[in-house]
Nucleic acid binder design. Structure first.
Lengths: 139, 139
DNA sequence: TTGAATGCAAAAAATTTGCATATTG
DNA sequence: CAATATGCAAATTTTTTGCATTCAA
């Protein structure tokens, strides 16, 4: 986080104002779709940035591990800062309801992913599907 | 699974050959996008079913809790039988690599979702993002 | 310089919708 | 019969691409 430019360069990429603004917008919004990010960037005062660039910027930032995304609702990836890691989502398949759970519920999963695969799981904002209390009674 | 017709009716829906064929196709394929399901249905001998109907059928089946879906790769929901629940996915944000973990790694998460929210989490096929061994060294 | 990134506009994908017709219960 | 689904084609929405131009290193 400390030095966006350095991180980009370390990946053979470059620091551009668009990337800075996209990153800032994601941070400001918390959760947002590429479209919403584009809007927010446009609203930050500077010139509007075409969505295509927003997509490309989000990809770049995600490659650096600075942002991540989830699919909470069917069709719309929601981006967020990798650090803004405070919870994960549970999404009801029946009615679409979305709930949150503290990240700690995934501790076991995270450590086992590390042991077994050397994988650094970021459970934050992960979306786990299932049935909410109401819908499950409905069956 | 036992009686598709009854379950549909219990939800004010009807049993149609299309829905039966879509469900069968999902079972046969394991994981599949709506498009792939449409293809598989077309290949099962009967008449082709338009994708729009496949989408509607998948929605209906998902509402009944018979199928679920995940977003393993950026753009393409992958449907699967709810029962065909054998693992969950870990997806690398850096390179897109996809790994699997036994469902049991989410036991804690599942029980806590139940206790805290009355939510019946189906961790099967959930996609948890993060960084794979290689990409994490890359940073 | 010089390769990487942007802007734009056009092309692909992926989903959804309207509506007349066919089917199920 | 009456209500629900289907088929189709058209309309949306979402994401990606090609390319000339601009910009960071």
């Amino acid at each position: 986080m400390s030095d966006l430019g350095a991180r980009l360069r370390a990946h053979g990429k470059r620091l551009t104002s668009q990337r800075e603004r996209v990153l800032a917008a994601v941070g400001r919004l918390g959760h947002a779709t590429p479209d919403e990010v584009a809007e927010a960037v446009a609203a930050d005062g500077g010139a509007a940035v075409p969505v295509s660039t927003v997509y490309r910027s989000l990809d770049a930032l995600q490659e650096l591990g600075l942002v991540g995304h989830t699919h909470v609702d069917h069709r719309a990836p929601s981006y967020h800062l990798a650090e803004h890691a405070t919870h994960l989502h549970v999404v009801c398949r029946g009615c679409g309801w979305v709930g949150e759970m503290p990240l700690s519920v995934a501790d076991e999963l995270v450590s086992r992913a590390d042991e077994a695969l050397g994988f650094a799981a970021d459970a934050s904002h992960a979306a786990v599907h299932g049935l909410c209390r109401t819908c499950r009674e409905d069956r």
